[in-house]
Nucleic acid binder design. Structure first.
Length: 484
RNA sequence: UCCUCCUUAGCUCAGUUGGUUAGAGCAUCUGACUGUUAAUCAGAGGGUCGUUGGUUCAAGUCCAACAGGGGGAGCCA
């Protein structure tokens, strides 16, 4: 007989109690008064209250009902006489599927710090906070596919291993089967002979699927990638991971404005999905944030709760400004005039975190799309804007900046004109001869096209309100940390 | 990688100008109680004060290096 004939707790809690016989399975959160088990199976943030007739239950069994233990409970679904829940299960049979030694199980029915839970990332999904975060992460992933599939985009698998080191998005992890003990084959000049390596050349983990994505768009019109990305940057911040997930749509026949419209619609779709499907998870995270903020001084608290913030993003168009306008706003800002900015503000600089935060969190107080960055600070594949005054060349780039997160989307219209692209690669020292396959898209049937990359974990951060990116991915990979 | 702060019981933290046996709450264990909601009440156990070295009659406390973590920055999504 099959083992899994249970009802999930999320379904059970929406069932009218009629003394019906049910079976549930899950993990014990607390066991109160020798009578009340709070049972959770991860299907919802809510626990099921299981009531034990302890006077007629073997004492040895009762002792094994401890925080963390896994149970199968058969019983009757009844209306609860207590005040914390509407239904409960009166147990007729309890089986311990897995014991949990209370002396050793690190999770207790109390508040734990996120830092501590990070060290036990293998167990933190069993907490309310991380259960909610991971269910929301799932909703955003599913909604991503729905959104693009609904618009006829093709899910495109760009490679994880790449021989291209011209992507220019950061330090890369080397992929090799050559020995690391100094016995690897070498060329006459002493350098490693990668012709002997697995792929016959030096290879790395991808830092972006974009260039291969463009190849797909040049045939299938609209594609998106959704996969892991790897960057070997020594970044130790609350918004960087060495392994993260990125969604990269790439569209033929889109100019920059089409691109922005798509990105904005996509983000709004994700937020609506989260709010309609995970309302109770968001309510819990909202309340959790409010309690956390009570400990902060008044001026550090946010003016909006989590759900209000998300609703606000749905209801209001993103602000769209050019880079030049952004610089003007910064030059006229109070912190600039009071010399509060650590970094210089002038046309041509890259916007620093403090500048982005001022624009998004102080000036506009909503997501902002900045377009038309100076060509000198942006990637080679971005389309040069026509008619720029000399020395002020800009590209058709767009970054979406979100409150509390920073850059959540980076995109552009791509340079489809071969001569301009080659000139740009030459100026930036990108070896064109290694990228003939990419340049072929400009040689054979080029067209205006655009795309962007959205950092999935940053999106999860924005929706959940989690302030550290290490808390929105099950197992974070960061410099000096590859546990689990 | 840089700046800054932190590291004391399983967890969260207190520990005075360096001074005798390092404390609390929660958790755990024992007992009581039993319609609880992080149950309650009484009692008990639990510490190489991150590591190494130094200063000192004396170091949890001062100094240095290292390790780990937080916050901020750079790089970026």
């Amino acid at each position: 007989m099959a083992f899994n004939h249970r009802i999930k707790i999320t379904a059970l809690l929406r069932t009218a109690p009629e003394q019906q016989d049910i079976t549930v399975m899950g993990w014990v959160r607390t066991f109160r008064s020798n009578r009340f088990i709070a049972l959770n199976d991860g299907s919802t943030i809510s626990n099921l209250q299981v009531v034990v007739d302890f006077e007629n239950t073997d004492e040895a069994l009762l002792r094994r009902i401890t925080t963390g233990a896994c149970l199968r409970v058969a019983g009757k679904l009844v209306a609860s006489t207590g005040s914390g829940q509407t239904v409960e299960v009166h147990a007729t049979q309890i089986d311990i599927l897995g014991d949990s030694d209370p002396e050793k199980f690190p999770l207790q029915p109390k508040k734990h710090s996120l830092e501590f839970l990070r060290e036990i990332a293998h167990l933190r999904p069993r907490t309310q906070t991380f259960g909610a975060v991971y269910r929301l992460r799932n909703t955003l992933a599913a909604a991503t596919h729905e959104f693009f599939q609904g618009r006829g985009f093709v899910y495109w698998h760009s490679p994880i291993i790449t021989a291209s080191d011209a992507e220019g998005a950061g330090e890369m992890f080397r992929v090799t089967t050559l020995p690391m003990d100094g016995t690897a084959p070498r060329l006459e000049d002493g350098s490693i002979d990668y012709r002997e390596d697995f792929f016959g050349k030096a290879t790395n983990l991808t830092v972006s699927g974009q260039l291969e994505g463009e190849l797909g768009a040049m045939a299938l019109s609209e594609i998106y990638t959704f996969g892991p990305t790897f960057r070997a940057e020594n970044s130790n911040t609350a918004r960087h991971l060495a392994e993260f997930w990125m969604i990269e749509p790439e569209m033929a026949f889109y100019d920059l404005e089409d691109n922005m419209n798509l990105a904005e619609d996509y983000i709004r779709y994700l937020i609506e999905a989260a709010m309609s499907r995970n309302a109770d998870d968001l309510a819990f995270l909202d309340q959790r944030l409010q309690e956390e903020e009570k400990a902060l001084p008044q001026d550090k608290r946010s003016d909006m709760g989590l759900k209000d913030k998300l609703q606000f993003v749905i209801d209001n168009k993103f602000e769209r400004i050019t880079y030049t306008e952004a610089i003007d706003i910064l030059l006229n800002s109070t912190p600039y005039k009071k010399k509060k900015f650590q970094y210089e503000v002038a046309w041509g600089i890259d916007l620093q975190s403090e500048h982005e935060r001022y624009l998004v969190e102080k000036h506009f107080k909503k997501p902002v799309i900045v377009t038309g960055y100076p060509a000198a600070i942006k990637a080679f594949y971005m389309r040069m804007n026509d008619g720029c005054e000399p020395g002020r060349e800009t590209v058709a780039a767009m970054d979406i900046l979100a409150p509390g997160i920073g850059e959540i989307v980076g995109g552009s219209q791509r340079e489809e004109r071969l001569d301009k692209l080659l000139a740009r690669m030459d100026a930036m020292g990108i070896p064109a001869h290694e990228m003939e396959w990419f340049l072929d898209t400009r040689r054979f049937g080029a067209c205006p096209h655009s795309g962007f990359g959205l950092g999935f974990e940053r999106m999860v951060q924005f929706v959940t309100g989690m302030t550290n990116i290490r808390d929105v991915i099950p197992f974070a990979r960061t410099p000096k940390n590859c546990e689990f």
